[in-house]
């Protein structure tokens, strides 16, 4: 039995300790917003936050996460899609198929948390997730828009 702190709640999970965190989130906790794309930390579809840091959960065994570390998945990013990034995503119609977007949003949210007003170069350098549909330019625009909205609100 392992304890995991996910989206503000502590969950008991019974799972082989080698199981990647991604599959614990998807299969034991039933939260399927976090996606599988490659399994080798290449694509970022599985990005979640652990204590505020973006982590590719497909390559992290669940045993490496302690019960006190706080995991945030896309489901826990905000209530009612209220995060400025989610609002920007809707306003700009960022997603195409959408499969990569949970990971994109979690990576972007991590960036904005440490750098509320990133330059375009910083965004490009920081977000290394793969989107096969090709939404990159709208992702960049979405991050800028969310940063501006947050700055205006102060």
């Amino acid at each position: 039995m392992t304890k995991l702190h996910v989206n503000g709640r502590v969950h008991d999970v019974q799972v082989d300790p080698d199981t990647p965190l991604l599959w614990v989130i998807r299969e034991q906790l039933g939260m399927t917003g976090t996606k599988y794309g490659c399994g080798i930390a290449q694509c970022g579809a599985c990005t979640v936050q652990i204590d505020g840091q973006a982590v590719r959960s497909c390559a992290l065994p669940v045993s490496a996460v302690t019960p006190t570390q706080k995991i945030t998945t896309i489901e826990g990013l905000s209530a009612n899609s209220a995060h400025p990034l989610q609002q920007a995503w809707v306003a700009l119609d960022v997603p195409q198929c959408g499969y990569c977007q949970s990971g994109m949003l979690m990576a972007a949210a991590t960036l904005l948390a440490s750098n509320p007003k990133p330059t375009e170069a910083e965004i490009r350098e920081n977000i290394t997730n793969i989107c096969r549909c090709g939404t990159y330019n709208r992702v960049i625009a979405g991050i800028k828009r969310a940063a501006d909205a947050t700055a205006r609100r102060g």
Binding site: R26, E27, G30, M31, T32, G33, T34, K35, Y36, T73, I74, E75, L77, S78, S81, Q86, W89, V90, D93, V94, P95, G98, Y99, Q101, S102, L105
Partner: peptide, 26 residues
């Protein structure tokens, strides 16, 4: 704007890989 954006920004959109059925095996 597209009609199918909202569920794609909060993880709610169900793709084939996400499907759950009662008694389902993988």
């Amino acid at each position: 704007p597209r009609l199918d954006t909202r569920d794609k920004v909060n993880g709610k959109q169900v793709y084939g890989a996400d499907l759950k059925l009662p008694g389902m095996l993988n």
